[in-house]
């Protein structure tokens, strides 16, 4: 590997998580994974198999009990809580199944919230938020409250919120879980489009149809992660 190439976005070296007992529960067995810039990785598996644990580890919401996790080449295990929080805020964009929008704030305010914890002027935050909303095709609903938006539009706002901070990685947890098929496919097209523009995506889903959209598919079963054959 030459030094000119940027480090992989996510590099897991023997990363696993065991909840201390008694009896100890091995939520995720030590696994190896490399996600490069521009990858579209889907993670599937039955519920309770360890998908959420994987999400929490990659999203820096939880700390592994063994192995090394490099995010953008930074050893996250060596970081203190302050740096982990900052890294989470700046390098990872989260998209949730239940959107997690603030009901009393407009779409722009919801998106701009992602930049509150940075050194950025309010005017610039709002401008970036409008840009991000335009990117997900919501130019016409900028000042709408979430209660007046459809499910698909809400998820687009949530995606815009994840995008606005220009993260290295978009981490989606069942992004289409609360949506009907037609809306879900439009959201997936949006994700495809973003991936085409160079965004690195990790999508966690139990929906096989969604899983097939990914360039690579991982399966987690009983805490063991395996990579399935590359489909494209």
């Amino acid at each position: 590997m030459s030094g000119h190439q940027p480090p992989p976005v996510v590099e897991l070296r023997g990363v696993g998580l065991t909840y201390p007992g008694p009896p100890p529960v091995e939520a995720l067995r030590p696994c190896e994974l490399t996600v490069r810039r521009g990858d579209f990785v889907t993670v599937t598996g039955p519920s309770g198999a360890g998908k959420s644990t994987f999400l929490n580890l990659v999203g820096l919401l939880d700390t592994q009990t063994c192995g090394t996790y490099l995010l953008d080449g930074l050893d996250t295990g060596a970081l203190g809580d302050v740096d982990r929080t900052a890294l989470r805020g700046r390098r990872i964009g989260f998209v949730f199944q239940s959107f997690h929008l603030l009901n009393y704030r407009t779409a722009v305010e919801n998106v701009a919230l992602a930049l509150v914890y940075r050194k950025m002027k309010r005017v610039r935050r709002v401008a970036s938020a409008r840009e991000a909303l335009a990117r997900v095709g919501l130019e016409h609903r900028m000042d709408a409250l979430p209660s007046t938006l459809s499910g698909g539009e809400r998820q687009r706002v949530a995606i815009a919120r994840a995008l606005v901070g220009e993260p290295s990685l978009l981490l989606c947890d069942e992004p289409t879980g609360n949506l009907d098929t037609a809306t879900a496919s439009s959201i997936l097209s949006l994700l495809d489009e973003l991936n085409g523009a160079g965004l690195t995506l990790v999508v966690i889903t139990h929906d096989a149809a969604v899983a097939r959209r990914g360039g690579r598919t991982l399966e987690i079963r009983d805490g063991r992660m395996t990579e399935q054959a590359v489909t494209c």
Binding site: D81, R88, H100, Y117
Partner: peptide
């Protein structure tokens, strides 16, 4: 609680 969790993912520290 949901809002707090969201803020934490957006980079908020406990003290924020």
């Amino acid at each position: 609680t949901g809002e707090i969790g969201l803020r934490r993912t957006l980079g908020a520290r406990g003290r924020h």
